[in-house]
Nucleic acid binder design. Structure first.
Lengths: 146, 146
DNA sequence: AAGCTAATGAGAAAGATTATCATTAGCAAT
DNA sequence: ATTGCTAATGATAATCTTTCTCATTAGCTT
């Protein structure tokens, strides 16, 4: 669970700086469910030294323009991933012992009609406008299980 | 702190203290998605003064014996709820503006066969043993929306 | 080239959660 | 009841992630 304070509201428009590009690039390079510290350390290894606050701000920026998405898998820090189209969105499977997360995309298509009906129901009966959904499974992975 | 392996008898379960009962009671009284601080303050209003650390420890205890469940809806603090049976488990709808959470249980039955198939697939192909799942929807509620 | 302003960096601060440790209290055997 | 063991508690310090502050830098626009 991420400690610390709730994210504050920020301005909408932003500039494409070298720092923001560098952060995005870590995800385009194939990084899956990276934390802010993961990104910070990976960049540092490449001698691209951003302040950790800038990493957080860049992640927020990339979320705001729709390129990234934030998740919490109970590890104590937020994780970030490239934002899939809804139709391609993957599920997550989290090992509650070692914290390993697996991206899993089978049955997504089958779930779509269910998701669609739930969204319609929520909008009609509760006045909610739904933007995204997430399925998460928890258990014990093969390594941690006996 | 490592959880010491104890000699096998009933002592493993833990003691049922007044503090733990008081914490559980807040949820039995109808408290939905309460944070540790919520519980702490509600008890304090009733002049039941536990230390905040004890509240956290009691919540952990109640999770361990299966009575509570922990969630994170992105507010910056963990939320806790009574742990439903899987067949009755509800979904969550989170407003990303005000943070309001709605418990929602329609379509659960229809989702069960999908969940069952996903669980089988994950166990067969990834060696995971699944214990629980969660569906979460995010959007903007009627009050915060235009 | 100048001017405006968003973005950055470094460090301090905030806030949730956990660890420490002396003390208390639940439970079992006497 | 009394004793003894040990888990649980309370108070508070420590930890850790995330955000804020503010002086400085750099990206645009004109």
């Amino acid at each position: 669970m991420p400690k610390g304070r709730k994210r504050q509201n920020r301005k909408r428009i932003g500039r494409w700086t070298a720092q923001r590009l560098a952060v995005l690039d870590e995800f385009l390079q194939g990084g899956e469910h990276l934390s802010a510290r993961d990104v910070y350390q990976r960049l540092r290894e490449k001698e691209i030294n951003l302040g950790i606050a800038t990493v957080y701000r860049s992640l927020d920026f990339l979320i705001e323009i729709g390129l990234l998405r934030q998740y919490d898998f109970g590890s104590g820090e937020a994780k970030y991933e490239l934002n899939d189209d809804e139709a391609d969105q993957h599920h997550h499977m989290v090992c509650r012992v070692c914290g390993k997360v697996i991206n899993y995309s089978k049955f997504v298509k089958r779930g779509l009609s269910l998701v669609k009906d739930i969204k319609m129901e929520l909008e009609k009966n509760y006045g909610f406008k739904i933007n995204s959904h997430q399925f998460e499974f928890r258990g014990v992975c093969g390594v941690c299980g006996d």
